[in-house]
Design a protein around this nucleic acid. Sequence first.
DNA 1: GAAAATACGGAGTAGCGACTCCACTTGTCA
DNA 2: TGACAAGTGGAGTCGCTACTCCGTATTTTC
Lengths: 197, 197
Amino acid sequence: MTSPASGRPLRADALRNRAKVLAAAEEVFAVQGTSSSTEEVARKAGVGIGTVFRHFPTKESLLEAVLVALLERLAAEAAELRSSADPGAAFFGFFSRVVSQAATKQAITEALAEAGIDARETTGGAGSGLTAALGVLLERAQEAGEVRADVGPGEIMALLAGMSYAAARAGAREDLLRIAFDGLRSRPGPDRGAARG
Amino acid sequence: MTSPASGRPLRADALRNRAKVLAAAEEVFAVQGTSSSTEEVARKAGVGIGTVFRHFPTKESLLEAVLVALLERLAAEAAELRSSADPGAAFFGFFSRVVSQAATKQAITEALAEAGIDARETTGGAGSGLTAALGVLLERAQEAGEVRADVGPGEIMALLAGMSYAAARAGAREDLLRIAFDGLRSRPGPDRGAARG
DNA sequence: GAAAATACGGAGTAGCGACTCCACTTGTCA
DNA sequence: TGACAAGTGGAGTCGCTACTCCGTATTTTC
């Protein structure tokens, strides 16, 4: 992602500007939501609008780049916890961290929701790295008996997105996580038919 | 809401049109999201744009009217279940129903999220009726030992909004509800410090 | 059933936001 | 260091959408 698809590498100043735009976009989208204008991003980055569009030809492509960057960072964090001595704490701690970040950074919720869609369709999309890293954390926590055995990474991604959404709007983050975590820890009992549609 | 704040009651045709607009707005917002244009609503209702704006002077006021109507309907449903013989089934069944509706009707998720904000601030806003009705269902389920005692209506509203969001984007509705319901049923154990931020 | 009051429809206005275009600047390479 | 390629900035275009205005139609009232 540091050189154009066709031809030479980017010029030094262009590379610098690209990074500035990406950073600015991340901040603007995180705080004010993804419907913020491209001009706002350009202003924050200290470049002209033309420059933004040169690097990211549509708003959608800019948004996508930001979301991918967010997901990659989360995936890296998850990967670091892979060999933690306490798999339960690693899993639940990571989950909490993501939700608490999302409460102030709206873009994360959207990234998770999109990645969740990907995960369900098993398309090797943007979120596959996070899904994979999360899968390892999940598996280890399950082996340690800290998380019920009948859930997969896809459900966790969806739960992550849902909790992030709820926490960002209504507060009550800790109460919600308490409920979700107890649900994740509980051994599946006999089906009481409660989830009928 | 059937006569203007100042003066005479609405003319018969105006009353008719108001209802048509409200119904059309509900459908359009539910299916295509709340960023659909007012013109789309007018077309669906079979009236001119001028008529829409005569009844609802801003788009925001139209949206609010739709959301309030949705919340009132949900509150009425909840109220009907108040005297059910099986409080657990009543509570969980209602919860499932709302989430499964929200999966296809985006407006519901937004209404719930707004109501969740209301509920937390104890503002007697649009969602207070639903929060109250839900509170009764919750309390009865708690007395019957079907739901843990340490959650209140506010958390349930937030959970409802979060699950609706997740179910609408990522699917996996039943899996998510299974986790959430087990979390709601579980007796609160010793604090394992998992919900730290 | 006619006058007065009320409501309707939809062309028109205003403003915003994504995206383009090109004269000008900056970096690269021999 | 000069020539050329690459990149920049921001005024301008285009399309979309919330909202207004007013001539016409409908309802109510007496």
